[in-house]
Write a protein that binds this DNA or RNA. Structure first.
Lengths: 109, 109
DNA sequence: GAGATTGTCAAGTGAATACTTCAGTATTCG
DNA sequence: CGAATACTGAAGTATTCACTTGACAATCTC
């Protein structure tokens, strides 16, 4: 599987319209046109958003005949989850050490 | 604790310079000037990034005398983690149901 | 107090971004 | 076939965004 670029994922998720599209797809796959319908937006714009979402592996899309069906892909969010996890564990380890030092200080008091 | 806005968090994290600042702070608190030093960027720009990071509760900052000390705050990332978790569980529940339906089809075959 | 350090404010610039419209191209349907 | 549907591409626009410069303010150090 091709690697996921964290920069792309975060940039993709930073836009509220794209997040709305994701949430909509969360209920199940949809053709691009139906994805566009409730958003006050042209189909062209949706197509542009879709390219961004696909590049970040947050959605997968497949064209059959004249209709492009869009569905959630988990790779993007998983990559983000891991990115967060990496940082969180690092920081918490540091805070733990800090806590230990403070406790040691107390003992020495 | 004041609520964290997911839109702000994602927007803040979407910028590579801000992520670099975060990673740098992961090793421990720093004054703004030292945060600016290794980045090819003015102190003014760092100040602007800091406001964004603070608004999204990814860092906390405190000014003592003439130096502003910056440190990681966990609230922002936690909010994001929860946002992801919400979606993930929703989608997976849907995929589970889909799996069940397919299994049922197999049985009926 | 003089001079250096550290940060802040206001205003400006260039690039990126989310849109649009208009003009196509395939595909399905009567 | 011809008309409607579903999308795609190119080009333009308006806003946002990261960043800069330059002037100022507060604090520390000698």
């Amino acid at each position: 599987m091709p690697k996921v670029n964290i920069d792309r994922v975060l940039h993709a998720l930073a836009d509220p319209t794209r997040r709305a599209m994701l949430d909509r797809l969360g209920a199940g796959p949809l053709p691009a046109s139906r994805l566009a319908a409730p958003l006050a937006i042209t189909l062209t714009a949706v197509g542009q958003h879709l390219r961004v979402l696909e590049a970040s592996r947050l959605v997968r899309t497949e064209k059959v005949g004249r209709v492009r069906t869009c569905r959630i892909e988990t790779a993007g969010l998983s990559a983000l989850e891991q990115w967060i996890g990496d940082r969180r564990s690092l920081w918490e380890r540091r805070l733990d050490r800090l806590g230990a030092v403070l406790a040691e200080d107390d003992k020495g008091e």
